[in-house]
Design a protein around this nucleic acid. Sequence first.
DNA 1: GATGAATGAGTCTTCATTCAT
DNA 2: GATGAATGAAGACTCATTCAT
Lengths: 205, 205, 205, 205
Amino acid sequence: MSKLKTQNNKKMANNDDLIDLNSPRGRLQQTAASLFKAKGFSGTTVRDIAANVGIQSGSIFHHFKNKEQILQSVMNDAILRVMTSMQQKLAETTNTSEQLYCLVLCELQAIHNEKLAGFQLLISEWRSLNDENQQKILKLREQYELLWIKVLDQAQHENLVNVDSFYLRGFIRGALIETGNWYKLDGDVTLETLAKKLIKSFVAH
Amino acid sequence: MSKLKTQNNKKMANNDDLIDLNSPRGRLQQTAASLFKAKGFSGTTVRDIAANVGIQSGSIFHHFKNKEQILQSVMNDAILRVMTSMQQKLAETTNTSEQLYCLVLCELQAIHNEKLAGFQLLISEWRSLNDENQQKILKLREQYELLWIKVLDQAQHENLVNVDSFYLRGFIRGALIETGNWYKLDGDVTLETLAKKLIKSFVAH
Amino acid sequence: MSKLKTQNNKKMANNDDLIDLNSPRGRLQQTAASLFKAKGFSGTTVRDIAANVGIQSGSIFHHFKNKEQILQSVMNDAILRVMTSMQQKLAETTNTSEQLYCLVLCELQAIHNEKLAGFQLLISEWRSLNDENQQKILKLREQYELLWIKVLDQAQHENLVNVDSFYLRGFIRGALIETGNWYKLDGDVTLETLAKKLIKSFVAH
Amino acid sequence: MSKLKTQNNKKMANNDDLIDLNSPRGRLQQTAASLFKAKGFSGTTVRDIAANVGIQSGSIFHHFKNKEQILQSVMNDAILRVMTSMQQKLAETTNTSEQLYCLVLCELQAIHNEKLAGFQLLISEWRSLNDENQQKILKLREQYELLWIKVLDQAQHENLVNVDSFYLRGFIRGALIETGNWYKLDGDVTLETLAKKLIKSFVAH
DNA sequence: GATGAATGAGTCTTCATTCAT
DNA sequence: GATGAATGAAGACTCATTCAT
């Protein structure tokens, strides 16, 4: 009631908030994310995106001021969604092992969820953002990484893991992100199984 | 002994063999690798490369038939060099733990060696190759991965690790590759230390 | 009658149909045809064409997917226009001599009509088309040649000419096309006179 | 005996004289002519020519000062050779009909003789010469055309033909040149037969 | 005479972006 | 909001030509 969001009715929604995926802007963003993931940012043309959405390329610029802003928005959205769902899940248990499993599984789901194509882009297309946009996203990433560090610090304290959180998180991040390049969600091995394998490798022996 | 023709007079050296890094072609390749790593394949222009080597952009095509072939050559070279040094090191011990450490360290060195910029590209710019070139490189990558799998299988057999080699290698690969994005070779933590941390995280608990 | 959609909203008009010469695409085509005729296909740059039309070179590719397609379109258009007018004229008489004169005159007009620069290109720039485009144009050319063969066959039957239609047509085609290189529409000798001279040379002695 | 050719021992043979086809320069010229005929002047690269001769592209410029001079030389050579053989043949008879047949056959042979690929280029690649070179070749062409005009004038005088020599020659030139695009030296119809068909079409009824 | 690496101007083409309708 | 024609800068690549060896 007190905090009036005066900035809300802009022509072009700022991308600090989640976008309705069913809005035109949302569909555009979603489509762009998939294409960026499949063909890379610079391998995807504005026309590609427009064609996949079913509009003209010129119309895109009513929704985003330029191509890079689409990427920024995609990343922003992805990280916010993952953080939100992660925090919800984390709140469901106080057991550190379970929390760790939860983090791993959430990140894996983010990486392999077609609807959330943006998450992998955070790393693979990081360089496609200019400095300013990198800074914007960086702040969110830091918040996100804090979730991990907290749990890992606690795990270390409980002797579940035996390596500095900073480095361990680095290793785990890499291990998870890279699954996007080789793990295929097809047969026996579900994401849950994959998460457990990862945990088994890194933690708690 | 007298008239040894060591230098085949091919028009354009094929890139199945290692290139002399001090030859014009070698310097070109080296420079391109660094730029690809820093700015991405499609973010690097042929003029960029030429300017950094100190030649005209047109001259590049005297050495490589097109831009993509430079990338392919870079990757080819990187993987051959790493495999060679890895095999040498592996041969120095029969102790599985030591062999594992050796693999990790070698790969880390490959990733962080400025002179070997191509190794990371194997993953980050995989998509920039066309199908044909992907197949060519894939064969080498499979040989390379075999080195890992053999050692990991043995480690599993000795109960040093407790996860399928295929998955474990996937995790380790990701963990190592990603260090390229966050680890900086500056102070206390040397590559050797980093390797040990990784081993400590994943193995032998 | 009310909402007649005469203008299909295709992305890029296919060039199987005649183009409105006053449309942007039409002017582009016309200009290109003149330049191709004057300087050859490969001697004409895309920038030449653009400059002569008064647009930027990049804009050309809004209308044609590449340079060769302009040539193909030019040829397509030229042959369709000539066939149309030829068929109309042919229908006006049943006298074989007159029909022959009509064919000769029509082709001469096509060759020397500035507005129809494409006709000569059918022969002089045939080689500039790739196989696929050659086949497309070839079908039209065969229809066109059929018009000639029919009349020549009849002329032979009436003893107006005394050489196989196939060969005779070959000779006449060459004789007419080559006038483009030496005949100048200036003074006494009109196209009609020229046509009569040709007829007089080849026919009806 | 009086007119000493002081200009003969230049480094780079001038191309007003016939070249020995077995000299390096001669083979180069011959090869270039074939390629120009097959792929057009601008469609043929200097490297193409060099590769076909079995030398490096740079070496070409020891024989010709630039690409265009090769074409000029090819044309020069072709027309000189044709004129020479034509004059020899013409001298063998005083019968006008026979002389006409001789001209037609000689030109046909020139057009279809693989070894004399340059003759067709006189027309198809005329435009590829700059003004200066066009003038040089033009003088030879005029001499060559004079051979025709003389015979045609005589034929007209004898009532063998009934159209101005200038126009008739234009028609015949076109008819003959164009055979290069459709006549194939394969089956029943020899060049002699073809020549007779042409004569039958145009002359002497 | 020959080589072949290097040049550098020039080619076609792409593509994010703009803007009048 | 949407369109789609137009822009114009930039991209990869080509090629005749030069020149030191």
